[in-house]
């Protein structure tokens, strides 16, 4: 798995957020566009792209994009 690819896939789930705002240290819960619909899109993307099923509190415990990447890496 590659962090840059993950960030690109992550950024594609947003419609209005500039991809340049999505970095490893981005606290994604704080992004203005972040919503339950975006959370669902990210969960579905991770399932489809990485075949990783996130647990209920994974999205909550991850603060940054890299935190989430690390959770996914640990399950691949």
């Amino acid at each position: 798995m590659d962090l840059n690819d993950f960030i690109k896939n992550f950024a594609e789930q947003f419609d209005e957020t500039d991809p340049s705002e999505i970095r490893p240290d981005t606290a994604f819960h704080d992004l203005e566009e972040y919503s339950s619909l975006i959370a669902l899109s990210i969960i579905a993307m991770i399932d489809e792209e990485y075949d990783v099923v996130l647990k209920g509190d994974d999205m909550r415990s991850a603060v940054t994009v890299e935190d989430l990447y690390n959770i996914v890496c640990s399950r691949v």
Partner: peptide, 14 residues
């Protein structure tokens, strides 16, 4: 409506 902020922007509404 989701009241608990910890679950607000999560998949639990779905």
């Amino acid at each position: 409506f989701i009241y608990d902020d910890d679950f607000l922007n999560s998949d639990y509404s779905f």
